[in-house]
Design a protein around this nucleic acid. Structure first.
Length: 577
RNA sequence: CGGGGCGUAGCGCAGUUUGGCAGCGCGCCACGUUCGGGACGUGGAGGUCCUGGGUUCAAAUCCCAGCGCCCCGACCA
């Protein structure tokens, strides 16, 4: 590849519409350009990286025994209606009505399609197990596209689906995929963490998210360095030493106080001179149409995933002002548990609270000295709040770290959520019809690039790992002089001969520009051919990551590069299945 | 969808408060000198000031409406 003719529009300054480091660098290095919010063009160099990531994924999926196929992005919506996800996912699904009046979706994911496919073809236990995958563009009408390719409306996903005869067999498929994911992210040079997660709309019981800690991450995870426990904050359980009942002897008598205008926890705490942890926050939710009150301590965050899972609700949302008034009889912001007759869930930490402050279900009024048990009755004590950095590890009790992270992969044990409604079944050895047991496994390929850059860059540009980069070696002649150019051509040609991915910077530009661009784009190895070194029959080899430069004989440099690349390649990971 | 910000040459921006010739830096083109970390000189090209409407002798600038983009929130597989 030659620089001229490849279309690598690099930028000296940050684009004004980018905030995230990875977004800025991808635009500056000439990897992507925005078409509209959430839709990006991959320029030649960006596309090369994307394809390298895809190939790493391909190699590891194939190695794990999965088979690649390609399904249509156009999907008839009735399959989605059969699994009940048409309503669940409806809003993010991009749909249109075709000329025959049929409703068609642009695939946001493919569980329905692949299950339908398999249901028609798999009949016997002898056809199983089976793991199918594809690498394809997905479409989602995102509420808020963000951070360049981190959350876009059109993105490349590797989605895999496993089909097994029983749970034990599915466990093996799941493990094979999980291990393959570890190898993939390792080879991509990502500092990833696999965490326990909530399956959400995908369904199933168990799921793992593969996360890359990064400031711009939209998800939050906790990790324990002592025992290795890690989980999404959506599901991380709280260690419940706070579950003891209140000390009744200390309880003072209930008292109503005026708190004009003070409705937020902060305001009420300041107004009454108490701590946020002395306040019981009362949230009114609507779960599948039914009102539910949820009590958490003032300094805690209610965890909607936990609440939703406890209620086994399909939809859970905070009640609006009108609904709050209807349910509590009081103004929004002044809700409290005393006298409230709806179903009431409370976080375990509320149980031990003595003489707490709550809303009085009346505008501008709160209650003091509220005591659980004496003043109100909770229907269910549950773990209803989100873990914080000060909580102990639920497994070993040590302190935990809380980080933002980008989700790059997600694996699910689905069970029969799709195989049952779509009739994907097989005959077992005894001739009995049984639904296949499924798993599904996704990787956001674009996010691999963005999260790698997010975690691997310096002031000059991007630092790519050995296997994932726009090009392994850049050959850079510094001057337009015949012998320099001739030597550059020779080395470039010899690298290609050796199957080494190389780019020749054949532009007539000043050395400064070539140096800056090479570091910005981040070619891992750079062969610099200048007057000073060539006069001694040598060229300079620069390592982008360390910035280290050495002089090497011009006839030895290709062999030297070969060795460096071999040493940098990731070792083969043992297959555990 | 709510809150905030932005929209002027390919890119980054000033000019808008107080209406009066469309600007700066980088990039681009030509010529010359340069050539080891974004060189220099001289000359040049390049504009729907986001769009539409209004006010005015006069609008990038004031008013109204709309569009686009970014950030925060809500939401999220």
């Amino acid at each position: 590849m030659r620089w001229s003719g490849t279309f690598i529009p690099t930028l000296k300054e940050d684009p004004q519409d980018a905030e995230a480091v990875s977004h800025k660098l991808m635009v500056r290095a000439g990897l992507i350009r925005r078409l509209s919010a959430g839709a990006y063009t991959y320029l030649p160099l960006g596309y090369r990286i994307l394809r390298k990531a895809e190939n790493i994924i391909r190699e590891e999926m194939n190695r794990a025994g999965a088979a690649e196929l390609l399904m249509p992005a156009l999907q008839p919506v009735d399959l989605w209606k059969r699994t009940g996800r048409y309503d669940d996912i409806g809003a993010v699904m991009i749909k249109y009505t075709d000329r025959h009046g049929r409703e068609v979706a642009l695939g946001p994911t493919h569980e329905e399609i692949v299950t339908d496919l398999v249901s028609g073809e798999v009949r016997s236990y002898k056809d199983l197990p089976l793991i199918l995958y594809q690498i394809q563009t997905k479409f989602r009408d995102e509420v808020r596209p963000r951070f360049g390719v981190v959350r876009s409306c059109e993105f490349v996903m590797k989605d895999a689906y496993s089909f097994d005869v029983d749970a034990g067999s599915m466990e093996k498929s799941y493990r094979a995929m999980y291990d393959a994911y570890c190898r993939i992210f390792e080879r991509c040079g990502l500092p990833y963490v696999a965490v326990e997660a909530d399956p959400g709309l995908m369904g199933g019981t168990v799921s793992h998210e593969f996360m890359v800690p990064a400031e711009i991450g939209e998800d939050r995870i906790v990790t324990c360095s002592s025992c290795g426990y890690s989980a999404s904050t959506e599901v991380a359980a709280i260690k419940t030493e706070e579950a003891g009942p209140a000390d009744a002897a200390k309880a003072k008598s209930l008292e109503e106080v005026r708190t004009p205008g003070a409705s937020s926890v902060r305001d009420v705490a300041d107004f009454l001179g108490v701590k946020p942890s002395d306040i019981i926050k009362t949230l009114v939710y609507i779960a599948d149409g039914e009102p539910v009150a949820v009590l958490v301590r003032g300094d805690h965050e209610a965890n909607e995933t936990k609440i939703k899972n406890h209620l086994r609700a399909k939809a859970l949302e905070l009640a609006d002002e009108r609904k709050v008034e209807e349910v509590t009889g009081g103004a929004m912001g002044f809700s409290g548990p005393v006298g409230l007759s709806i179903r009431m869930l409370a976080d375990n930490s509320v149980r031990g609270m003595v003489n707490a402050v709550t809303g009085a279900n009346e505008k501008d009024k709160h209650l003091r000295n509220v005591n659980p048990g004496r003043d109100f009755t909770v229907s269910e004590w549950i773990d209803a709040r989100t873990i914080t950095a000060s909580d102990a590890c639920p497994r070993c009790g040590s302190s935990m770290e809380l980080k933002h992270a980008i989700e790059i992969g997600h694996t699910f044990k689905l069970g029969t959520k799709y195989s049952e409604p779509l009739n994907a079944s097989f005959l077992d050895e005894s001739g009995r019809q049984r639904p296949v047991i499924m798993g599904c496994y996704g990787i956001g390929v674009n996010r691999i690039l963005a999260s790698l850059i997010e975690t691997s860059h310096d002031k000059d540009g991007i630092i790519w790992p050995a296997e994932l980069n726009p090009c392994e070696v850049a050959v850079i002649p510094l001057k337009k002089e015949d012998d320099l150019l001739r030597e550059a051509e020779r080395i470039y040609g010899a690298l290609l001969e050796e199957n080494i991915d190389a780019i020749l910077d054949d532009r007539e530009r000043s050395p400064g520009i070539k140096f800056k661009d090479a570091d910005l784009v981040g070619f891992p190895l750079q062969v610099i051919i200048g007057r000073k070194s060539l006069d001694q029959e040598k060229v300079e080899l620069k390592e982008r990551a360390s910035g280290e430069k050495k002089l090497i004989g011009k006839d030895d440099v290709v062999n030297h590069i070969k060795k460096v690349l071999e040493a940098a390649a990731c070792p083969n990971f043992p297959l555990t299945t």
